[in-house]
Design a protein around this nucleic acid. Structure first.
Lengths: 199, 199
DNA sequence: CCAGTTCTTGACCATGCGGTCCATGACAGC
DNA sequence: GCTGTCATGGACCGCATGGTCAAGAACTGG
C-alpha cells in the first residue's frame, strides 16, 4: 500500500456505465472508455481487468443500485399500489424523452448480449427473478391494503408487471412520441394493476 | 447480362438475417457473413453493398414479411380477438424456448442500434407505427364482433398490445422458463384484451 | 530522508476488421 | 465457336482494435 489511486472508483465506474449504456458493449472501444474516464490503459486494466470484466462489473452494480431504488420507492409509497404504478410509468416520466430513448442499461445489455454471453444471460435472468420477488411482495401488500384484485397470484401479477414495464421501456427506445409513451404507460398500468372490486 | 448469379438471393438474405439475428450486428464479422452465405467478398459487396446496407436490407425485408404474416393471421382468425391473442402468446409458443431466447429480429436491432443509428431508429419507429395501425384495425373489428371492451380507443389499445407483446418477447430473452413465459403471456393477454361486459 | 511498493503513462504489439480491386472463368448472344 | 460481359474468389490494404509491458513517478511508512 504505497501510492493511493488518483481516481475515484465510483466516478470511474459511473462514467464507464454511461458509456456502455449509451453506445452498447460492442460499439464501445477501449479508447472510448479511456476518454470517458480520463484513465490510462494500464490503470484501467490493473484496476478492473479487461473490457468484459469491467462490463460485468458495472452491470452488476447497476442492477444492485436499481433494485435498491425500487425497494426504497416501494417502501416510501404510502400505499403499495402507488409504488407499483410509479414503477410502470417511470420510463415515460422524463418530458424530453431522452431517458426513454436511452432505455434501461440492463435491458439493453440483455438484448445485445444475453444470447451470446452466458454470464450476461445469467446476470439478466437473476436480476429479473429478484425484481419479480420484490414486486410480488409489493403486490401482496397492495392486496392487503385493498388496492389490488385479491384473487390474483402475487408472483404471476409481478411477472406481468415486469413484462409490461419492459414493454414500455422498449417502446421508448423506438423513438415513440413522449406523450404517446405516457399514454401507453397509463393504459398498461390500469390493465396490469387490476383494482379490487368496490365493496 | 452475361453470366447469371450462382446464388439464390432469397436464400442468401435469409442466411444473413439469421446470422445478424442470433449474433447481432456488431458481433457479426464480414467473415461470418461469407461463411454463412458461402459467397466470396466480391460477390456479396457487388450484390448488396457494404455490411450496413445489407443489414438495413434484411431488416426491412424482415419487417415486411412479419407484417404480412400478422395481417394474414388476423385475417384468417374467425374472430379478431383470436388473432390478437395469438399475436400476444406467439413468443411463448415454441416449447423448447429456443425461439423465445432468440427474440425478435426487429426488437433486437432496435435495442442494439436505434440509439446510435438514425436509419435503424427510423426503420424501427416506422415498423411499430405500422404494426400499431394493423392491430388497431383488428381491435376495431373485435369491438364490432362484441369481443372487446367497446369504450376503448382502438389505437390506444393497439399500442398497449404492442408494448405488452414486446415485453413478453423481452422476457423470453432473459432465459425465463418457458412455462412461466407462457403464463405471463396468458396473464398479459387477459389484461390487455379487455372483454366487453356480458349483456 | 530513504526504501519499498504501488500507480501511472504511453509506447508497443499482434490481430482481425471492413473494404477494395483485379485476374480468372463462366455464361449468353450472335 | 467466338466475343463481350459480368459474376466470382481471393489476394491485398490500411486501420483501429483489445491487450501487454516496462520504465518512471508519486506516495507511504519508518
Amino acid at each position: 500500500m504505497a501510492r493511493p489511486r488518483q481516481f475515484d472508483e465510483e466516478t470511474v465506474l459511473a462514467a464507464v456505465r454511461d458509456q456502455f449504456w449509451t453506445a452498447g458493449y460492442a460499439a464501445t472501444s477501449l479508447e472510448d472508455l479511456l476518454r470517458v474516464t480520463g484513465l490510462g490503459k494500464g490503470s484501467l486494466y490493473a484496476a478492473f481487468g479487461d473490457k468484459r470484466r469491467l462490463y460485468l462489473r458495472v452491470l452488476g452494480d447497476y442492477v444492485e443500485a436499481t433494485h435498491n431504488t425500487l425497494r426504497a420507492v416501494l417502501a416510501d409509497a404510502p400505499r403499495a399500489i402507488d409504488g407499483l404504478r410509479r414503477y410502470l410509468t417511470a420510463p415515460a416520466a422524463d418530458p424530453t424523452g431522452a431517458a426513454a430513448l436511452r432505455g434501461c442499461f440492463l435491458a439493453n445489455s440483455t438484448s445485445e448480449m444475453a444470447a451470446a454471453d452466458a454470464d450476461v444471460l445469467s446476470a439478466s435472468h437473476g436480476a429479473f427473478e429478484e425484481r419479480t420477488g420484490i414486486l410480488a411482495e409489493a403486490v401482496a401488500r397492495a392486496q392487503r391494503e385493498g388496492d389490488f384484485s385479491a384473487d390474483a397470484d402475487p408472483r404471476h401479477a409481478a411477472r406481468a408487471i415486469v413484462a409490461a414495464q419492459q414493454g414500455i421501456v422498449f417502446m421508448g427506445r423506438t423513438g415513440i412520441d413522449v406523450t404517446e409513451l405516457r399514454a401507453v404507460a397509463e393504459t398498461l398500468a390500469d390493465q396490469v394493476l387490476p383494482a379490487a372490486p368496490a365493496r
